[in-house]
Amino acid sequence: MTEPAARGFSRSREPAWVKWLLIGAVYLIVTVLIVVPVVQVFCIAFSAGIEMFIQKALVDHDSRHAMWMTFWVTLISVTINIFFGVALAWAVARFKFPGRTLLISMVDLPFAISPVAVGLMFMLLFGRQGFFGGWLDEWGIEIVFSTPGLILATTFVTLPFIARELIPVMEAIGPDEELAAITLGASGWQMFWMITIPNIRWALLYGIILCTARAMGEFGAVSVLSGKIAGLTETMPLRIDKLFNEHDEQGAFAIAAILTLFSLITLAAKALMEHWVLASIKKPDADEL
């Protein structure tokens, strides 16, 4: 975020027509690629009236269950990711150990691997014919086609999000304050709660927001693993796909509209946070926890 005041006098050196052409281009790009599709989602969702929308999205039992499912899967995988992100960032940003770079690179893997391949991997491990399939079956543990499978897949695809936000921030802040705390006799946990967490809170929150958005929308990996049992293992993106396949376009777009709304809320939360961060940088005292 750059404040206009911080820019200096000579920032816009291009002729005015170039400037306005470029600004026009930005408006065009954002309108065509982002605004119109979002508007269309809501247009179709509400094209049959608001009662229909409420009926399809909020009253229908299976749709409501899909929301419930998405909520739980997101909550649990984001929680796992918070612990993982903080732990990894602490290890990587505060210590040097062999294999450190390799570990950082490995955490980026889920960014690049196709979600379909992710689903396939877990199927190969935990499916009935998979490597652990027979053993799990003996003990009556269900992973694939059940909530744990959905959580595993979602956690996998969102693994880098929080860690990636935290590592650069922790590296930038440096260990001085924490070293001081330890030298002054604070216990490890005291230092962690009173120095580390307050220092990284914005990055952590930002990571959580990104992670939540991605977790809510995961489709490719969970579609291989879910079994699509209505009212049991269906998440919202899967339900969109299924309603669409069952000649219920209204229903599909109603749920799509809710997911779109969530992602817009996510963006708003992010923008609001950036605003607050700026404010807190200006007045550091006003922001004590």
Partner: peptide
Amino acid sequence: KQSHGGSSSQARSVIDG
């Protein structure tokens, strides 16, 4: 409880557990 999907992909799910 009901599960619906493409016929082959449903069969694959049952085979996989």
